[in-house]
């Protein structure tokens, strides 16, 4: 052993408690602002298109991560799409079991090359399946604040 002696009584191991009080603000940037304003004002999802590889990024970016092209062409995509994956989360941010599990989906909106992550509502996990059609449910317009939470959830639909 590297150390000649170690603590041998558990009550000798005294802990000191500390915390890191960290607060930040974050800016969404040029493309992010357009995305959130479009949701807030029109309830419409906006993407950005790369004319080199035809990728449509939702949320939009001003650069293409595939070929580093500058993206300036914003396109509207549908508020419905197909469910690429889903999960039912039983543990909260505090590590404790949730009384009400949260259902989360990965949604490929029609017209987008990427998939957004959001809550699924008006359903149960047993009802879900891959490829299922889901549509966004937005907050009432006067309650929206230009955030990802302006979307309440996605719900299964026949559309």
């Amino acid at each position: 052993m590297a150390m000649k002696e170690r603590l041998t009584k558990a009550d000798e191991a005294k802990p000191w408690y500390g915390e890191l009080p960290v607060e930040s603000l974050y800016t969404a940037g040029i493309a992010g602002e357009k995305f959130f304003r479009s949701i807030q004002e029109k309830g419409v999802f906006l993407g950005s298109k790369c004319h080199k590889c035809n990728m449509v990024y939702v949320p939009p970016k001003i650069y293409c991560e595939q070929d580093f092209e500058k993206l300036e062409d914003y396109v509207e995509v549908a508020d419905c799409g197909s469910l690429e994956s889903f999960t039912c989360v039983h543990i909260g941010l505090d590590g404790k079991r949730l009384l009400e599990p949260m259902i989360v989906g990965l949604i490929n909106l029609d017209g987008a090359s990427t998939s957004i992550v959001h809550m699924l509502g008006e359903t149960t996990v047993e009802e879900l399946c891959m490829g299922m059609r889901v549509c966004a449910v937005f907050k009432p317009k006067n309650k929206r604040e230009g955030a990802i939470t302006d979307i309440l959830y996605f719900k299964p639909t026949k559309q």
Binding site: S24, Y26, A28, G32, P59, E84, S85, F86, T87, C88, V89, I91, G92, L93, G95, M102, V104, L106, I116, V117, H118, M119, M130, A147, I148, T149
Partner: peptide, 22 residues
């Protein structure tokens, strides 16, 4: 991501749940 993902207030294991399922 603090703008697109963190506001959903999900335990990070949700990413593994989505990935394992797919």
């Amino acid at each position: 991501d603090p703008i697109y993902n963190r506001p959903l207030k999900l335990n990070t294991h949700f990413i593994a749940g989505l990935e394992m399922n797919r």
